[in-house]
Design a binder for these strands. Structure first.
Lengths: 296, 296
DNA sequence: CTAATAGTGTCTTTAAGACATTATGAA
DNA sequence: TTCATAATGTCTTAAAGACACTATTAG
């Protein structure tokens, strides 16, 4: 390994004399979309509680976007990967450790932060709701769980000479008690001869900071896309769960009802029988299962 | 919008006085895994040419990793997104414009570049091989197409108390005439009670710069994962193509043979009939089709 | 005619959708 | 006993796998 470059330097010599250029660099942050599935209260003692998909937001105390809600996150340090940064911030801001974490997408619009050039490497996290109570309120910041709903408002497809343009408007709603945040995010797919351009834009955003409506929309769509062909949903379920609970998780993610028999046929591979049963339910007890992760 | 923060500033005033902190920032680059599917020569005039999956690599002329091969790419400028940077570099380095481009993953190991802190937002690009001849040799750098092969060497799954550890070793081979580059990339999935850790490591890498063996492996796996449930393969096919050609694309991506009848049943939705036929083939002519992109 | 690919038919296997039926415990 | 959910059976529909058979050309 004694190859010399055009200046006659070996790699070792080159690295010893190397000085980074004086060009502008972006700040790099991570933002996290932390999902959980929480059971609602139910008035009728025999009725099964419904579940809701929730994400964690933090109220901003300073400019810009003061008093609006933002995703938890922060800047990446020079000695860590973006993933390590995300894990560190997760513990700092929420006390949650050991969690499912998946890199989502890197958002890099140069003006996404009005202060300066900041890229965001966004992560999606999934936690089971029994874990989060432990650490609720640990943090001084006002972090709150919001119910999430993402609906397609409408889709328009127009054929062009050599492809098509499809425009889908999504309505994102986030609710916490009396607080309601809303956003419209437009997904435009422009298909030409070769290549497709997929663009997300925020049409309107009320009460959400930065481009976070876009990031949340992206995360919900990713979760929806992956839930049917992976075991990702198990991350949202407690240690012991019933198959109906698991089905509810799928239903709130996909935002549609599923039939019981086919659901069980398909997803019972994700569950391992135990000899325990749910109790005092006002109806037939349900068998409890343990998670059985897919290995492939 | 006249909310004032704890210093009594409005958002406008805050932004006017805002100065970024003096902390370290990473350089951010893009790296591109550009795939194409090229037909080989065939000696027997009646035999159909086989196709090979190829990627573009550029020989490094300076330290570090001098004389090894690297993915095309470059640094992101302050006025552009990572995607715009990737498109710009694609044109600069290869002359290829208007191409399928998809963000893959952001690689952020702080020591992935021995010179300094550089994150790489990696993209996957797909081009049909008839397009690339146009611009071959445009560039002064020695860019070359290498045949790609990614094989699973072995997989080990060990059950643990609360999950499992699965280790898969991939052998990545890149070949161009007499030049053969090799790498072994290990994928370790550590599943615990809650959370899974997915880690890619380079075990060995011959002739490939930086962590590019990892990026290429990631790209091949992504392409394999998406080809069966999207229309992504159409990006690798010329304007007019036969169904056998399309099937060949699937076969080289998935690295396995497919049955003709079921393939056609499933993927004929991606093709629109024309009244043209292939000619002088030494066997029954084949109908030519036009791309029919999926709109959903 | 021959070698080679093109293109289709059909039987089997597997999975998904739809819905009905039986089981069971707390109040 | 009743209400509400648990759990399973089964008929239908759709897709995938396997493989055989016919069609068509240049040489």
């Amino acid at each position: 390994m004694e190859i010399r470059d055009t200046n006659g330097l070996t790699e070792k010599e080159f690295l010893a004399q190397y000085r980074p250029g004086d060009y502008e660099r972006p700040s790099v942050a991570t933002d996290m979309v932390i999902f959980t599935a929480k059971a609602c209260q139910e008035d009728n003692y025999r009725k099964l509680p419904k579940k809701k998909l929730q994400i964690l937001l933090i109220k901003r105390g300073g400019h810009p976007y003061i008093n609006t809600w933002a995703l938890p996150g922060g800047f990446v340090n020079p000695d860590e990967t973006t993933e390590q940064a995300a894990k560190r911030e997760l513990i700092e801001e929420t006390g949650i450790d050991n969690i499912y974490l998946e890199q989502l997408y890197t958002f890099s619009d140069p003006h996404r932060d009005p202060r300066m050039w900041v890229m965001s490497c966004a992560y999606m996290a999934l936690v089971d709701s029994e874990k989060i109570n432990v650490s609720a309120g640990d943090d001084a910041k006002s972090a709150e769980w919001f119910d999430v709903s993402l609906k397609t408002e409408h889709t328009d497809i127009n054929e062009t000479a050599n492809g098509f343009i499809s425009v889908t408007d999504y309505i994102l709603s986030l609710q916490k008690d009396n607080e309601l945040l809303n956003a419209k995010v437009r997904l435009t797919k422009t298909r030409t001869d070769s290549g497709i351009d997929t663009k997300y834009e925020i049409i309107s955003s009320n009460g959400l900071a930065f481009d976070h409506a876009k990031i949340i929309t992206f995360a919900v769509l990713r979760l929806r896309g992956k839930v049917t062909y992976t075991d990702i949903a198990l991350n949202l379920v407690p240690e012991y769960f019933t198959l109906t609970e698991l089905q509810q998780i799928y239903e709130i993610i996909l935002d549609k009802e599923l039939l019981k028999a086919p659901f069980r046929r398909k997803y019972s591979i994700l569950a391992e029988e135990t000899d325990m049963f749910s109790k005092y339910a006002g109806h037939r007890p349900s068998q409890l299962f343990r998670k059985k992760w897919l290995t492939e």
